[in-house]
Design a protein around this nucleic acid. Structure first.
Lengths: 343, 343
DNA sequence: CAAACTGCGGAATACGTTTTCCAACGGAAT
DNA sequence: ATTCCGTTGGAAAACGTATTCCGCAGTTTG
């Protein structure tokens, strides 16, 4: 035993116990196409079970394509991300692959570092999920790193919006925003506030643009729409609502939040300020995280197929190479009790 | 190139480019103790950078102890689990290790299967987080599997309660329950309902027992305490609250929920039934998930050091072998607005 | 000045597996 | 009966790295 962590039972041991050669044992255990005599097959299987043999994935990876998929996520604790990751894990497993997860906690420099580390695992694919994977980030160094990974035969899949030319799965954020905006306009709201994200988050920008388009299509004028920049978090929504309420609302009868987390925070903020949702003000979100259907009042939102995105990402990762495929998933408006038509 | 996924640049290429032997390149790049001439070192470094070389973790794992840690989690989407996992990921990274995550979605049979698969990665340690890792599960097969893994030099760390003799990190669930119970009793509540978990979840059982102990210590009689079994989920808490309210509360002025998720569900349920928290009924939880400080009213709860548990688990996993160490972490009562003293 | 020692580069080996190649064997066809 | 082919087992090579061992040079020591 060469070093502490490896005093394992090997194929060699199994073969010896079964009285066959290593080749034969490998063929039985490794799912080879070659046939071996039923007699020998049974003996190998028995020996493997008795010895509790498990193949060494590292050694196997040196001869076969690996079946690991590395996932780089901004923040695993985000509800929508948790849903995506869980779906990926499930899908990968049904395909006999497994997922290793790393989070970058939103630090852009750590994305590069993380990708470097993960590349050493020689995963079959690298799945990046973030709203911030832009080609020019870090002076293009991330792009270069991913490029050379791909040139070495790896697959890169991006979940979220990007301007890079890898396979990508995104949500139609503009359309999602537009359907929320149109709904709010059609249900008779006259003055609307948009609780929007920091400008640098690209998908949040698309959602805001969609809100505007939907509202205008529904007949609202520019001066009836107010954009409130806030942190994209529950607290951000809470604070924005309190502030708006503190300033007297100036007629605002609906809030379009850039995602469910902000919307739920906003509902709390209004309630804390003594306003009732939906009686005094309607609130909508985007995403349809599990919590959205659980809060009181339940949140009207645009459901994005988060789990499906996870599944499709794994399919891209495992499927045949396709250069720069794009899959855009559409959201679906779900009307619940956090909105109410105005007379 | 033997198979598609491996046309990578190898140490051989770097050595050739630098004009040195493979051994020298390995010594420079692999963090060896052997010294190499500064001249050569510089050339190797330059070549590696130019070629974008990354070591092959699989190949390295065949000579050195691996630096991966495999995590088996019941359900990654659980808020408390997300906190633990994030902390593990962070801690592992600072130690130069990385974490691979798999979830079993609560299915006990899949725990065994998952451990089998993960063992093939020859991780340095296996970290299991669940409330259900009992020795006799599956007729002891899981225990046997873990035992042989440990005999092969692996480390097993369990986060949560267990009766197995591996290193374990747990929370003092009984004490947490007791401090919540004592607080509720001391603040003048006279009739209390416990929203408890399914009986087979051991830690939930300890919490319930702690509730009882705390309440009795505070002077409540057996007949003033009512245990309501409900699903451990937001919906479970919601339904239980609705049911209780529908039956007229029969004087209940406080609810002790077995965790924050159930408590938050219960608050919604009461509100939906027209009752106010904390005016009509006080509600407490256990865990202190991030959401607990965000809901309205903010939840009184017993904060468990979830992140610390993740950190300590990684330290156990990476530290020197210690047979059957136990670390029990204590919770801390945090009083917020979901409870109110009764006159 | 010879001998011992130090510092460092390189050849070779080992890690555990898959896969190619070869040999042996048995049965069928001529 | 001889040749041919299909089947199956085993020997050996290969994957990329870390490390042991050896040798060469240069330096110190007696």
């Amino acid at each position: 035993m060469p070093h502490a962590a490896r005093p394992t039972v090997t194929l060699h041991d199994v073969a010896a116990a079964a009285g066959v050669s290593i080749s034969t044992a490998s063929r039985v255990l490794g799912g080879s196409t070659r046939k071996v005599a039923p007699e020998n097959e049974a003996r190998v299987l028995a020996a493997a079970a008795a010895l509790r043999y498990t193949v060494d994935a590292s050694a196997r990876a040196m001869r076969r394509a690996s079946d690991s998929i590395a996932l780089v996520a901004d923040d695993l604790t985000t509800p929508s991300m948790a849903v995506v990751v869980a779906a990926m894990e499930r899908e990968a497993r049904t395909a006999g692959a497994f997922v290793t997860v790393s989070s970058t906690m939103g630090a852009v420099e750590r994305q590069l570092e993380t990708v470097r580390v993960l590349r050493s695992l020689r995963p079959r694919a690298l799945v990046l999920t973030s709203s911030r994977f832009m080609a020019n980030a870090l002076g293009g160094r991330l792009l270069k790193e991913l490029g050379s990974y791909e040139r070495e035969g790896g697959r890169v899949v991006i979940v979220g919006e990007t301007d890079m030319t890898f396979d990508a799965i995104g949500f139609d954020d503009f359309a999602a925003g537009r359907s929320a905006g149109a709904f709010v306009a059609e249900t008779g709201h006259r003055r609307v506030a948009i609780f929007g994200g920091a400008r640098e988050l690209r998908n949040m920008g698309s959602r805001t643009a969609g809100f505007m388009a939907g509202l205008r299509a529904g007949g609202l004028a520019e001066r009836d729409i107010r954009i409130v920049y806030c942190e994209v978090s529950r607290q951000g929504g809470f604070d924005a609502a309190r502030r708006l309420a503190g300033e007297g609302m100036s007629g605002t009868d609906a809030v379009l939040a850039v995602n469910d987390t902000v919307a739920i925070g906003a509902m709390s903020g209004f309630r804390a300020a003594g306003l009732a949702v939906p009686e005094d003000v309607s609130v909508t979100g985007i995403d349809d995280i599990p919590l959205a259907g659980d809060v009181t009042p339940r949140l009207t939102t645009v459901a994005l197929p988060l789990a499906q995105a996870g599944v499709e990402a794994i399919r891209f990762a495992l499927g045949n190479a396709g250069a720069g495929r794009r899959l855009t998933l559409e959201g679906r408006l779900i009307v619940r009790e956090s909105t109410r038509p105005r007379k």
